[in-house]
Design a protein around this nucleic acid. Structure first.
Length: 296
DNA sequence: AACTTATGACTAA
DNA sequence: TAGTCCTAAGTTG
């Protein structure tokens, strides 16, 4: 489900409702039982992200950080919130909203609600609940291990300094040193951390870059523009809670399925700019979408 | 009940 | 490149 913008929103949700609070940790499903037991009744001290990686800091006393939980959601993991944190996340993504018919909006006689499905980790405060389902990774890491994970990642378009020249040039250099297709490179988390399949398709379209062009053969100027577009789109994604890439003046009212995206999941439909049929192909096991006319 | 799909990433060969 | 892992929801039979 998640690209970098969604992970950043999760960190904001944890910041708002869990950081500074004492937390009961459990693993209803059992697969994180030891880790949950170790941190049970500790205080959450921080929520940080890099790319698609989420790190939750905990300590035995308020304000301390002794352990980190490292969570990677993979293709279909997710968090469900309830209670006060549900209200917090309602300003945010539709995807973070629990099913209102099943989870109570505020603590009630049904508090806390029964775990639904395979809940790997439950984090509970007096007022808020977060259930982790289907993560690719959920493990305790030390600060050193966390630094190692972050060091293996490339620059993150959601970093505060993402639009600074050194960061932009870092991305440009990482792409231009490889002859692999640029469409493959931008999905490589050591090149640009947090970019996923939708942002890849949409930003390459918006900057007119053919995904099959070798990294070495894309000009530094075009790659700089691509980086800047990742930053613009992903910052928008954090605010809006959804990946919306089509500029308002290009939206097609007659095409309800084209409201959000130019090319992603629009195979065979006419390009919003030139009318050419949008193409789809498999690139390293992931679906790639592009306009062969607009992207050269 | 079985199968399909999904905004991801790893390992083995 | 293929296989593996993590889960829920939708579709098909």
């Amino acid at each position: 489900m998640p690209e970098g913008h969604a992970i950043r929103r999760l960190a904001l949700a944890f910041d708002a409702s869990f950081v500074g609070e004492q937390c009961e940790l459990s693993s209803p499903q059992g697969r994180f039982a030891a880790g949950a037991a170790q941190l049970d009744r500790w205080w959450m001290s921080a929520a940080q992200t890099k790319g698609k990686h989420l790190f939750l800091g905990f300590g035995p006393e308020p304000g301390e950080t002794e352990e980190w939980i490292h969570v990677h959601l993979g293709l279909y993991g997710g968090w469900r919130f309830a209670g006060k944190s549900e209200v917090g996340t309602a300003l945010t993504p539709q995807r973070l909203d629990p099913d209102p018919g099943i989870l109570p909006a505020t603590p009630s006689e049904h508090w806390p609600p029964e775990p639904r499905g395979a809940v790997r980790l439950r984090i509970l405060t007096a007022e808020s609940l977060a259930d982790l389902i289907g993560p690719n990774r959920c493990q305790l890491v030390t600060a050193e291990e966390m630094a190692g994970i972050e060091a293996r990642l490339g620059p993150d378009p959601l970093a505060d300094d993402a639009l600074s020249e050194p960061v932009r040039q870092d991305f440009v250099a990482r792409v231009r040193k490889s002859s692999r297709p640029v469409g493959e490179l931008v999905m490589d988390q050591s090149v640009s951390a947090g970019v996923g399949n939708i942002y890849r398709a949409e930003a390459l379209f918006r900057t007119g870059i053919n995904p099959y062009r070798a990294g070495t053969r894309v000009s530094a100027a075009r790659l700089g523009a691509l980086w800047d577009d990742f930053v613009v789109l992903m910052r928008r994604g954090v605010i809006e809670g959804a990946i919306n890439t089509v500029e308002p003046d290009e939206a097609q009212d007659w095409d309800p399925e084209a409201e959000r995206w130019y090319v992603y999941h629009r195979t065979g439909r006419p390009c919003l700019r030139c009318g050419t049929s949008i193409r789809q192909a498999d690139l390293k096991g992931r679906a790639l979408f592009w306009c062969p006319q607009c992207q050269r």
